[in-house]
Computed example of a mutant assay.
Amino acid sequence: MDHKSDTTGTLDEALERLHGTGPERLGRLTNHAPMAVEALAARGRAGAVHRWLDLYAPKLEEFPASVEPVTEANRPAALGDPRRAADWIAYFDRQVAERPWRDVLAQWWPRLLPGLYGGATHPVIRVGHAVRTLEAGDATGPRLAELAHGLGYWAARHSPLADVTVLPGVHGSAADGLDAVAPLANRADGGFPARLARVEELPAWAAAVDDPEEARLRLVELVRAATHRYATHGHGEATMLVHAATAPNAVLRALPALPRALWVPSLRAAWTASAAVTAMYAPNEPVPYEPVGDLDAEEVFARALAHGDEHVIKFADTALDVGDQRALGAALRAVELSVPLG
């Protein structure tokens, strides 16, 4: 079940509907609707977009108020200030109106990459969805605006991972690398920012990679390994462990639009994000993976849509990118572990 460009106009309608809402709600939770509707449209489910959005709409909040415009002079002080989300989105709206969107992305990607961990990695995931749809089809006004919203959210939530000791490298597979991540000792307390602040050590993986194409292949491997791992470890935290796969996949989706010189640092940031999420939410023990039988991608995605949870939909979308039976089984595990929408 390949992803495809939505030619019905539904995605653009949905994005226009959503751009009057803020990137967050309750001051800390992410608005997942733009990502989920892009996934639905990309998987040929445009007909379900507005129905799904009607169910999700009670979670949405109005677009936040502006503080003051972001300028070249005040840009450094505004970076990482979540109160400035509206200002940053307006800044990127101007940028994508004035220049080719790939030029804006290439300029800002290395600036934003060190802060990929802010907003529980949701900003980079939103950007990855926006880039996929721009790469697949027309750069319509709503799709360009969606990239601006994603980049603006990322700039506002920009949060580097500080004071992490890099342990000796793991030279095996990405699965070996994730297996080598030591779980946080006190995983029961606090949300994402509090736990992230307690991540002190992570193993290096693929640290010797310096070739862009090799970096892309390792990123593909990482997404596959993190998706597979959910089947045995997702019960540690059904929602948050999804991001160990969806965050690096967002980076992978952006690569075709980025200069090759940015691919190696992108791999390193994606590994750190996936490893940190693994450390923060790993269960005490894995459960055995039990193959479900011969799974059909279309049916698996239909079950994710019927379940309705935004993380389940986005994880199923990533599992379909991976495309093998264990990835599809992991998507069904997310259906089983998660609370349905509504």
Rank of each mutant, 00 (worst) to 15 (best):
Arg253Lys: 10
Arg99Ala: 15
Leu134Pro: 05
Ser173Gln: 04
Tyr281Ile: 08
Val220Phe: 03
Ala225Asp: 08
Thr227Leu: 09
Trp271Pro: 03
Asp176Ser: 05
Pro286Trp: 14
Asp210Ser: 14
Ala208Phe: 02
Ala86Val: 08
Ala73Trp: 07
Leu15Phe: 03
Val124Pro: 13
Leu295Pro: 03
Arg303His: 11
Gln95His: 06
Ala334Met: 12
Ala139Lys: 01
Ala304Asp: 05
Arg94His: 13
Glu298Phe: 02
Phe192Gly: 04
Val242Ile: 13
Arg28Met: 13
Asp309Phe: 11
Ala273Met: 10
Leu29Thr: 10
Ala136Arg: 14
Leu40Glu: 05
Leu196Pro: 00
Gly141Thr: 12
Arg157His: 15
Leu53Cys: 00
Arg268Thr: 09
Ala86Trp: 05
Ile313Gly: 08
Ala175Trp: 03
Asn249Glu: 13
Ser5Glu: 07
Val131Tyr: 00
Val264Thr: 07
Arg84Trp: 06
Ala330Leu: 08
Arg224Tyr: 04
Pro123Cys: 01
Ala156Tyr: 00
Asn31Ala: 09
Thr8Ser: 15
Gly27Val: 04
Ala279Lys: 07
Pro64Leu: 09
Thr21Ala: 10
Gly152Met: 00
Asp211Ser: 02
Thr165Cys: 10
Glu13Asp: 10
Gly236Arg: 05
Phe192Asp: 10
Ala39Pro: 02
Gly20Thr: 14
Ala245Tyr: 04
Arg102Ala: 09
Thr21Ile: 07
Arg303Cys: 09
Arg229Asp: 14
Gly152Cys: 00
Gly329Arg: 03
Ala148Met: 04
Ala306Phe: 08
Val220Met: 06
Ser159Pro: 08
Glu299His: 14
Asp103Gln: 15
Pro183Ile: 12
Val242Leu: 10
Ala78Met: 12
Trp263Val: 00
Arg198Ser: 14
Asp296Ile: 09
Ile89Gly: 06
Leu328Cys: 07
Leu202Pro: 03
Val124Arg: 09
Arg75Val: 01
Glu299Phe: 09
Asp321Thr: 12
Glu336Gly: 06
Val300Asn: 04
Pro183Asp: 14
Thr10Ile: 13
Val96Ile: 11
Arg198Asp: 15
His228Thr: 04
Gly308Asp: 02
His3Phe: 11
Asp317Gln: 03
Leu151Cys: 04
Asn249Lys: 09
Ala120Gly: 13
Val170Leu: 01
Ala244Ile: 03
Val312Glu: 15
Phe301Glu: 01
Thr10Asn: 06
Ala194Met: 11
Arg132Ala: 15
Glu98Ile: 03
Val322Ala: 10
Pro291Val: 11
Arg187Cys: 02
Asp54Trp: 04
Glu72Asp: 14
Ala145Gln: 15
Leu53Pro: 00
Leu252Gln: 05
Trp108Gln: 07
Asp6Ser: 00
Ala279Arg: 07
Leu11His: 02
Asp138Arg: 15
Arg75Ile: 00
Ala180Met: 12
Val251Thr: 02
Gly22Asn: 01
Ala106Gln: 06
Leu178Gln: 10
Pro183Met: 12
Gly329Met: 03
Met35Leu: 03
Ser5Lys: 04
Val96Asp: 02
Leu144Gly: 06
Leu219Gly: 01
Ser66Gly: 13
Arg17Cys: 09
Gly177Ile: 01
Ala245His: 03
Tyr117Glu: 12
Leu184His: 05
Ala231Arg: 06
Val220Ile: 13
Arg94Val: 11
Asp296Met: 08
Met280Thr: 10
Tyr281Gly: 07
Ala279Gly: 08
His50Asp: 14
Ala226Val: 02
Arg253Thr: 11
Trp52Val: 02
Val127Leu: 15
Met35Tyr: 00
Gly118Ser: 07
Gly119Thr: 12
Ser338Pro: 07
Arg187Phe: 02
